[in-house]
Design a protein around this nucleic acid. Structure first.
Length: 458
RNA sequence: GGCGCGGUGGCAGAGAGGCUAUGCAGCGGAUUGCAACUCCGUGUACACCGGUUCAACUCCGGUCCGUGCCUCCA
């Protein structure tokens, strides 16, 4: 059995992963807030944890992967007030689009995808426990977590209470007993969504949502908690505080989740994505212009913990790499899949998800002669990385992704060119090729006739 | 200001105390009506300064640069 090593943000070390229950591995990753389209950063998180869950499923007999949808949040309320659409309409719309876009990227749906609004009762119950244990208090219609009540607070992000106060740049609400205290429950104003609670009509804070949903669907402690690196503070720190104080041990930061896994940030052309810079790259737009596998490979060609700079070059590179793999698979299309015992690439992936090295190993594999073993190995790795899932013929004929191309017209031109070449009318033949190139289509003359495919303009 | 992360060849991107990373691009060649594809060959690297060591790009310290979080942003 392969040994999986993961970098644990909680201990800041790469550690051997040992499940709490080897028969059932439980993992949670913070999903998106559905008030708009998912961007490439959301996609990276979804793809990274999809790969992790695929690896876990190879090693362990049962894996439960939970990733939530946050469907109540101030940003959603703001979006609703702006557009005039009902909140439930907005959240349904963007949750559906998120799932469709992630599916395009080859992301297998999580086993459970809980919605925050379906777990309000669990959140209220959790808050009540925290109040009963003197970790939370009611003030001015709010319920707040009292940070000084949890001595280990800050253990994940490595900030002490005093350090945070030294760097605080936020105005402190008057009802807070301590500047670091954060909201568990907040009152709703007129027109805002509200649920009844012992503290009046209101809604939950963001952090309590994940604590409640993770506990409800996985139980505590569970094995792995994931999310984007930016969530480490305050979101994950606060989740740990809530969950350890309510259900686990206030002395043990790992009594909520044993491993914390964080994926790195995505920048665009060297800059942080932000609305003010106007450089937010949406997954929804990308999947219109590129095959999902191309985008997925581009996302996996940098190690998940490293910052990833998203450029057109990365997409073009991934596309070329996939074409190369599919070409070889096409040469081996009549070969059978056989059992393979070589697990070198799985070992590489088990070393903290070293996907770039796995891709390198795939390239090295290509130096071998065609054989059922080679084909089987490529397919096996592809199944983990979530690539090479199409039939090679389809991929190479560009049938997988037509984009906005006029396929019948292209194929007509191709036939004309073939006829011209038969008659040795190379001037006409080259003229047609130039036209196709101007449309973003390249031609390859193979032994079986000419094929075409779209190429990427960077 | 506080807490982190990172600086590898034209580009992307792994790695490791001494052993060719790899891919793309480039260059030379084979193939091709010309190309493309494919194949063969080929060059370039480890921010800076000290230290440890027989040996450091790899460990330690410092400097510079970049970047993330500290604002319910994945």
């Amino acid at each position: 059995m392969a040994e999986l090593k993961l970098y644990n943000s909680l201990t800041r070390k790469k550690e051997v992963f040992e499940p709490i229950d080897t028969k059932h591995v439980r993992i949670y990753a913070c999903g998106p807030t559905v008030y708009s389209y998912a961007h490439i950063g959301n996609a990276r998180m979804a793809v990274v944890f999809d790969v992790l869950s695929r690896i876990l499923r190879i090693i362990y007999p049962k894996v439960t992967y939970v990733s939530n949808i946050t469907d109540i949040d101030d940003k959603i309320i703001a979006a609703s007030q702006k557009s005039g659409e009902e909140i439930s309409v907005i959240t349904k719309k963007y949750a559906d689009i998120y799932n469709a876009d992630m599916a395009s990227l080859g992301v297998i749906a999580p086993d459970i995808q809980p919605r925050a609004t379906e777990h309000i009762a669990d959140m209220i119950a959790l808050i009540q426990i925290l109040i009963a244990k003197n970790h939370a208090y009611e003030a001015d219609g709010h319920v707040l977590f009292h940070v000084p009540s949890f001595a280990k607070y800050g253990g994940l992000s490595g900030r002490s209470h005093d350090e945070q106060m030294a760097g605080a740049r936020v105005d402190i609400a008057s009802y807070k007993r301590d500047a670091a205290d954060f909201v568990l429950w907040k009152p709703s104003h007129k027109g805002e969504p509200a649920w009844g609670s012992p503290w009046g009509a209101g809604r939950p804070g963001w952090h309590i949502e994940c604590s409640a949903m993770a506990a409800e669907h996985l139980g505590l402690p569970f094995d792995i908690h994931g999310g984007g690196a930016d969530l480490k503070f305050p979101h994950h720190e606060n989740e740990i505080a809530q969950s350890c104080c309510a259900h686990g041990s206030a002395d043990d930061l790992s009594s909520f989740a044993k491993f914390w896994v964080h994926n790195g940030f995505v920048t665009v052309d060297g800059e942080k994505m932000s609305k003010s810079l106007g450089n937010v790259v949406l997954a929804h737009d990308l999947v219109k212009d590129h095959e999902g596998e191309t985008l997925r490979l581009a996302l996996l060609s940098t190690h998940y913990r490293k910052p990833l700079d998203w450029t057109g070059n990365a997409i073009a590179n991934a596309k070329k790499t996939l074409d190369k793999f599919y070409k070889r698979l096409n040469q081996m299309k009549d070969m059978d899949i056989v059992d393979i015992n070589s697990s070198k690439i799985l070992d590489v992936l088990c070393d903290d998800l070293n996907t770039p090295l796995a891709i390198t190993e795939m390239n090295n594999l290509l130096k071998q002669e065609n054989s059922p073993e080679l084909k089987s190995k490529l397919i096996a790795v592809g199944n983990i990385l979530g690539i090479l899932q199409h039939s090679p013929e389809k991929w190479l004929e560009s049938k997988v992704f037509d984009g906005d191309l006029d396929v019948p017209y292209i194929e007509n031109l191709l036939q004309q060119r073939t006829a011209a070449r038969m008659n040795k009318d190379f001037a006409r033949s080259d003229e047609i090729r130039d036209e196709l190139i101007s449309m973003g289509v390249t031609i390859e003359d193979t032994a079986d006739g000419a094929i075409w495919k779209r190429y990427i303009v960077v």
